[in-house]
Each structure stands twice: as C-alpha cells, then as structure tokens.
C-alpha cells in the first residue's frame, strides 16, 4: 500500500516535470487525473454546475501557470489542487452570501435522468439528491467543506487540515459536528432517502 502510494507520487512528479518542461501532454494527463474529483468537490460545495465549472477551470489555470512553485515535499498535488479550489469556492460563496436562485435548477433543467431510467426511479433519485443537497447547504461552509472532503473525497484528517488550513483537531471536530448536523437534518425527512439515492445509482 505504502509502496503503491510512493510509486504513484513518483509517477505524478514525473508528469509534473514533463509539464513544466513544456510538454502539453503532461498537463492533459494531470487534468484527466484530477478534473472529475475536483469538479465533484466544487459542485458539492457550491451546488451549482456553472460555478463548479468556472472554479474548476480557474483552479487548473492557476495551478498550471504556477506549477513551478509546487513543492511535492510539502504536500501532494491533490492536496495542493484542492486547496486552490476550496479557496476559490470560499470566495464564491462569500460573493453569493445573498439569496440567489439557480435558474436552471428553477426550470428543472439540471437533473436530467439517464435515458434508461424509469420515471419513478428518476423522481426518487431527484428527491434523494435534493434532500442531501439541502442538508449540505444548511451546514455552515466550514462544516460542509469538512464533510465533503471526508466523505465525498475520502481524505484523511491530515489532508483535510492541509486543504482547509486549520489544525488537524479542528478538522476532526468539524467533521464530527457536520456529521451530527447532517444526521439531524436528514432524520425528519427519512433516512431512507440516502438509501434510495444509493439504490437507484
């Protein structure tokens, strides 16, 4: 396991070196490796497709232009990219503190069911997704970040503390508190909703 991780780090370092040397394929490889996870992180924090895409693009552009500054001895590339994205998400929800309506969500354009999905399954999936999104949005931004990084991205407490820029104990307590709040807010709706989301996927 440790050997695998070391090998993976060495592999990423080699890709970074190639990218810094001007190899466009190196950038493409890094993008392919992290874009999907970074998009999910941004979406889970902002709950808006357009914002998530904008942040994804901005974060990669910043990271690629400053790749020569990245120090693999201090943090992993994943942690560095997540730190950049989370700080941009923070700026976004600071700007959007006032009530805003996502017009695509309002018009029901966002949750498109796959063609094979039955209407009832699509409805249940949408309900489950909406209730989780609402529960996440009810959390304070810091608790949401901690929960999304822990459960959505499977990061360790140490990595979470690096991304959030706080001590490890603080990261732990934020995850714990977020877990409790999420449990409380999902309980009245019914814990079966989560199960539903998992079942229809």
């Amino acid at each position: 396991m440790i050997e695998d991780r070391r090998q993976s780090h060495a592999e990423i370092d080699a890709i970074i070196a190639r990218a810094i040397a001007g190899d466009q394929v190196g950038y493409a490889e890094l993008y392919d490796r992290y874009a999907a996870a970074l998009y999910r992180l941004c979406y889970s924090l902002l709950m808006n497709e357009q914002d998530a895409e904008d942040i994804l693009q901005e974060s990669f552009l910043y990271a690629f232009k400053n790749l020569h500054r990245f120090d693999s001895g201090k943090a992993s590339l994943k942690t560095w990219l997540y730190t950049i994205a989370v700080s941009r998400c923070r700026n976004t929800y600071r700007r959007k503190q006032f009530f805003t309506v996502d017009i695509s969500q309002w018009l029901g354009l966002e949750l498109k069911a796959p063609p094979a999905e039955a209407p009832e399954a699509a409805l249940m999936r949408r309900d489950a997704e909406e209730s989780i999104s609402r529960a996440l949005l009810d959390l304070s931004p810091r608790l949401r970040e901690a929960i999304v990084l822990r459960y959505g991205q499977g990061m360790t407490y140490r990595e979470i503390s690096e991304v959030m820029g706080c001590p490890q104990k603080t990261a732990e307590s934020r995850v714990r508190l977020g877990h409790q709040r999420l449990k409380q807010s999902l309980q009245p709706v019914g814990a079966g909703l989560l199960e539903e989301l998992l079942r229809v996927r």
Binding site: Y31, A35, Y43, E129, I147, G154
Partner: peptide, 24 residues
C-alpha cells in the same frame, strides 16, 4: 449513516465527460 455518506456523497455532482473535455 457514516457508510451511507461515504457512498452517497461521491455520487453528488457527477461530471459530464463531454463537458470536462470542452473545459480542457
């Protein structure tokens, strides 16, 4: 509950590969 969160949160905001390619 923790397990369900671990399994359900990664499914939130699954990206569209075509869109990711456009962004690239």
């Amino acid at each position: 509950f923790a397990l369900k969160l671990e399994r359900s949160l990664p499914t939130l905001g699954r990206p569209n590969q075509q869109r990711l390619d456009q962004l690239w």
